Simulated assay, not measured.
Amino acid sequence: MTEILALSGITKRFGGLTAVNELSFSLAAGEVVGLLGPNGSGKTTVMNMISGFFAPTQGVIALKGEPIQGLAPHRIAPKGVARTFQLVRALPSLTVSENVQTALAFGKQRLWGEEARERALHHLEEVGLAERAGEKASDLTYIDQKRMELARALAAEPDLLLLDEWLAGLNPTELRTGIDLIQSLEQRGMTILLVEHVMDAIRALCGRCVVMNAGRKIADGPTDEVLRDPEVVRAYLGDDHA
């Protein structure tokens, strides 16, 4: 299978703190991979390095074989990387449609006007939000804000979608809706790396997981095997449970 993303020996230091320590893994086209680990293990730092918010201290990040480490976010995004954040970053004074149109205006094709409005509606339909396109983003419920953020990410036409705790804070009904949305993207062949703590979602979505602890990789393999790994159990629950 075609390799979409490859991290080789990635390290990130903040002064004397090593947040990520010589991390290596790769994603093949169409994979949905979970990036797991207890709080503070370095997962969001990895997402920030892939998307350009942080430059790695050392190591190589390759997107479809092209090194991208150290490039700014506005240079990485057009190459095919889109992401969501732990906290939804909506433009509250704009409508739902206009929020998606901003992504199209600065995306690969730089769409404006009627073409952008039509494309925005298409992406809102993908996430089940087309009927609320004309409403203010500030009026959306939490799950609908998450849907809107996903529509913005899809508007970038990514080859790689980074989901940083996109399912966090949802009630059971909303969680099922969110899982269904991500599964629909998987069925379309999208490559997804997701940071998540909701294990029901991990088991439903991820055929494979990479697990971090204290900045280093401690496991990488099929989800069921990884979640039974004694070192993974120890990282999450402590020695008494391993």
Rank of each mutant, 00 (worst) to 15 (best):
M1C: 11
M1P: 07
L5K: 05
A6F: 00
A6V: 04
G9E: 13
I10N: 02
T11E: 10
F14H: 06
G16Y: 11
L17T: 14
T18G: 07
T18F: 07
T18W: 05
A19M: 02
N21Y: 12
E22W: 03
S24A: 05
G30F: 03
V32A: 09
V32D: 02
V33H: 02
G34Y: 10
L35S: 07
L35I: 14
L35W: 10
G40Q: 08
G40T: 08
S41K: 07
S41V: 12
G42C: 01
N48C: 06
N48S: 09
N48T: 07
S51P: 02
S51H: 02
F53V: 13
F54E: 11
A55R: 12
P56R: 06
P56Y: 08
Q58V: 04
V60P: 00
G65E: 10
I68F: 01
Q69V: 09
P73S: 09
P73G: 09
I76K: 03
P78V: 14
A82F: 08
R83F: 14
R83K: 14
R83Q: 14
R83P: 09
V88E: 04
S93V: 08
L94D: 00
T95G: 11
V96A: 02
E98T: 02
A105M: 13
F106M: 14
G107D: 10
K108T: 12
K108G: 05
R110P: 11
R110M: 13
R110F: 11
G113H: 15
E115I: 08
R117F: 00
E118T: 04
R119F: 01
L121A: 06
L121S: 03
H122A: 11
H123N: 10
E125A: 13
E126D: 14
E126K: 15
V127S: 06
V127F: 07
L129S: 10
E131N: 10
R132W: 07
A133V: 02
T141G: 15
T141H: 08
M148P: 08
M148Y: 10
L150Q: 03
A155S: 04
A155Q: 00
A156H: 11
L160A: 06
D164T: 13
W166I: 14
L167F: 03
L170I: 10
N171D: 15
N171Q: 11
E174A: 15
L175W: 10
R176K: 13
R176D: 04
I179H: 11
I179S: 09
D180P: 01
L181C: 04
I182C: 01
S184Y: 00
E186H: 12
Q187A: 15
M190A: 02
M190L: 15
T191H: 03
T191G: 04
I192D: 04
V195E: 08
M199V: 15
D200L: 09
D200G: 12
D200Y: 07
R203L: 15
A204I: 12
A204C: 10
C206G: 01
C209M: 13
A214Y: 13
A214H: 12
R216W: 04
D220A: 10
D224C: 03
E225P: 00
E225K: 05
E225Q: 13
D229Y: 00
E231W: 00
E231A: 10
V232N: 01
V232F: 07
A235M: 11
A235E: 06
Y236D: 10
L237R: 05
L237M: 14
D239H: 12
